[in-house]
Design a protein around this nucleic acid. Sequence first.
RNA 1: CGGGGUGUAGCGCAGUUUGGUUAGCGCACCUGCCUUGGGAGCAGGGGGUCGGUGGUUCAAAUCCACUCACCCCGACCA
Length: 572
Amino acid sequence: MLFSKSSIYTLKEKPKDATIDSHELLIRGGFISQVSSGIYTYMPLGLRVIKKVSKIIEEEMDAKGAQQILMPAVQPAELWVESGRWSQYGKELLRFKDRSDRDFVIGPTHEEVVSDIVRRYVNSYRQLPINLYQIQTKFRDEIRPRYGLMRAKEFIMKDAYSFDANPEGLDVSYEKMRDAYCRIFKRCGLNFRIVKADSGAIGGRDSEEFMVLSNVGEDEIFVCDNCDYAANAEKAQSITSQDITIPGEIEKVYTPNIKTIDEICKFLNIDNTKVAKSLLYKNEKGEIFCFMLLGSDSLNETKAKNATSSIELFALTDKEIENLGLINGFVGPIGLPKDIRIVADKRLEQINNIIVGANEKDYHLKNVSMKNTNAQYFDIRNVNEGETCPVCGKGKLKKYMGIEVGHIFKLGLKYSKAMNVVYLDKNGKQQYIYMGCYGIGVGRCAQACIEQNHDSDGIIWPISIAPFEVEIVQLDQDDKINSYCQNLYNQLNASNIEVLYDDRLERPGVKLKDMDLIGIPISIIVGSKNFQNNKVEIRLRKTKEKILCNIDESVNIIMDIRNNLYKELEAI
RNA sequence: CGGGGUGUAGCGCAGUUUGGUUAGCGCACCUGCCUUGGGAGCAGGGGGUCGGUGGUUCAAAUCCACUCACCCCGACCA
């Protein structure tokens, strides 16, 4: 592509909306342009990157026998009513009516549509397993889009859906996708970790996320420093000391105006592991829960939702607590109204003498045994950095922030049952199909890659997803140089090298700055001083290495460098 | 949805507190000269419903009300 004829619009100044480097560079480099909050146009350079990532995904998906399809962005509400998600999915699902007043959604995901296809065409075990995928624009009406393509409302996603006759088959399909994902992210030059994850509203059993480690990531993950255990905070577990203590007599203590854990620890001069906190929440159905945790721990709402089969949880307000006849700050498990379910963290299970609220103003109870409560026990606490790994039992957990670029699930029978996705087995018996689903955020991959690969001058693309492999930067104008560059450009194009030729009549500084900003891995800089001596300079974006070579050697050297860059990626 | 912030030329901003000539600066853009290995210089030039609506006033970018958009923090979020 000729730079002078292209729609590459770079900016010198930092756009005021960009708060993280990758977002700034995407805009300054002319890769994307914002249209509305969370909605972007992919400019020529950006689209080339998207296509590169997509191509890698397609190659790896196809290699696993998955077949590409393209489903509609607009879906009828009927399918969502049938799966139950019309009512489960909140405002994030963009709904609208057509001219004849029928309800539709803009697809945030495609389990319903793909299930509908499979139930219509797949009838026999002989047709299984299958895996259908697409690369398509999704829409989720995010409450707060941010960071450019990182959390956009409209975004490009690869979503794949596997269909198997039985759980063993699903395991195989899942492993294939896991393998494909590792290859995809590796080829994109991403440094990532696989973490165990919560499957969330989508349902299902096993679920793993592919996380790009980055301090601008929005997900908290815990990684063992000894073994390969890694988990999202919503799923992470740890080994913690659990005191088994001797029961004593329950004792009522006067604790005037002492409401918080900190205050009571100070007042009674005790450690915050000797107290239990009791948190009152209600869910979307109006059920009320008392979540109990050690004073030193904090509630993980995702775990709490799973423990109570809730879709949403809301902390009760002081007023709501009063209406139950309770007092905020003095809530405890003894003497709660019967319809409040006590859900306690597992750490409390063996505890026999904990301090809790007395459900009476200005009083707490000492020596309360959890056995005297009708608590149910679940893991509902947040893991803390430094706690012991639950798998190897030796390593300590370290906390990182991660960008979720991929997520794989074993859905099981959730949608099959809801939507009657069935087949006939060898015995002619009707069975439900086991589903898996597998997503990759295409734009998010590209941006995560920038976040991991940039410097103060601009982007440093890995060659696999760079918008171009090579850039010719012509610094000076004369007939010889013009024809040399043009010839070089033609030769590289003829060799199927993707090349951007900066033929603009700009001053050298402008072109060199743009070169670094856009971040193409290999540049050939053609200037009159070197050219007089029959030399051109080849420069590598990543290392800033300069290679001065004879003008007639440049093509061969570029080819070598290019091939090596691809090999380096494979070797990571 | 709660809290905070910003809307003035394509981009980045000043001016608004204390209303008063023709609304300004840098970058970008156009013309010319000059320059040419890291976002040059000089001269000339084009480009504005001051986010929108309504109000106060002799007079509004500036004051008031409402409203829209965007950004940040939180809640939320496959």
